[in-house]
């Protein structure tokens, strides 16, 4: 399984709505812009956001001889995407499944997608520490090139759930690459005053407490929010934004890790 993938990156968070999907898609887009071959797998079965964010909502998955063919964002096939969203008939359809069925679906996603040779496979996960996560971890445990990025928002309510996710990673033996803090501050478009709507610094102190690398702060940027639905890379559209800087730094860290690994 996934023998042709150099590095697998799990994007995790105990908390929902902290920006896992936004970070996953922007990370994948940044990697693509930097010339890597990337796969993006959305294992959030109940709330798949990736097809919408990348503007691929009406695309279909095809069954090829080697397995499911992912949906490609670009003609050069440098970014392939797989999500249950492609399998739902209507965007309003709900996946009302219990655990075992979700488990089977995720196994299929991990085993039956024909990704071809990839530099990075980014896996976007749902919130929590339950069926989906246990399944992903069980399957990825034997893959040495797998590591996790934890996304949090600064407020304590979120940090509390994220601490549980770190415990989860440690219990299941997945190495953690580091923590990203999202929604750090909001710059008023009128007066440029920065307000920490959800307080600030929570991600950094969490990284210190749990002895993990801190990968940076992404501010709340309505311009990045508006890119959702268009499939555009923040690093390309908003090259001067803090978001792009943090993403570029992160990709540099990741690029070094695969060079050292291979």
């Amino acid at each position: 399984m996934l023998e042709n993938v150099k590095s697998v990156i799990l994007v995790l968070s105990g908390k929902g709505g902290v920006g896992k999907s936004t970070v996953s898609t922007q990370l994948a887009l940044t990697l693509k812009e930097r010339g890597f071959k990337v796969g993006l797998l959305d294992v959030d079965l109940c709330g798949p956001s990736v097809p919408h964010i990348l503007n691929l909502e009406n695309e279909n998955i095809h069954q090829g001889t080697d397995g499911w063919v992912p949906v490609y964002l670009d003609k050069e096939q440098r970014l392939g995407v797989m999500s249950i969203g492609f399998l739902l008939k209507s965007r309003n359809d709900a996946v009302v499944w219990r655990g075992p069925k979700k488990t089977a679906m995720i196994k299929q996603f991990l085993e039956d997608v024909y990704w071809q040779d990839l530099d990075f496979l980014v896996i976007d996960t749902p919130p929590g520490t339950s069926d989906e996560h246990i399944t992903v971890m069980e399957n990825l445990r034997q893959i040495p090139q797998c590591s996790a990025i934890i996304v949090t928002t600064p407020q304590e309510v979120a940090i509390e759930d994220v601490r549980k996710e770190i415990t989860f990673c440690r219990k299941t033996g997945i190495s953690i690459l580091g923590i990203i803090e999202n929604m750090s501050g909001y710059q008023c478009p009128t007066c440029n005053e920065c307000t920490n709507i959800f307080s600030s610094g929570g991600g950094k102190s969490l990284a210190e407490i749990s002895k993990l690398q801190f990968l940076g702060c992404l501010p709340i940027d309505a311009r990045v929010g508006k890119l959702a639905g268009q499939g555009l890379a923040a690093v390309k559209e908003l090259p001067d934004s803090t978001t792009s800087k943090v993403l570029n730094d992160l990709v540099t860290v990741l690029a070094e890790s695969i060079q050292n690994g291979s």
């Binding site: 008023c188 478009p189 009128t190 508006k226």
Partner: peptide, 17 residues
């Protein structure tokens, strides 16, 4: 909506596109 505590102007942090 978000009301800036400094200038009291309103803005959409999560735009309702």
């Amino acid at each position: 909506v978000f009301v800036c505590p400094n200038c009291k102007s309103r803005s959409e942090v999560f735009p309702a596109t």
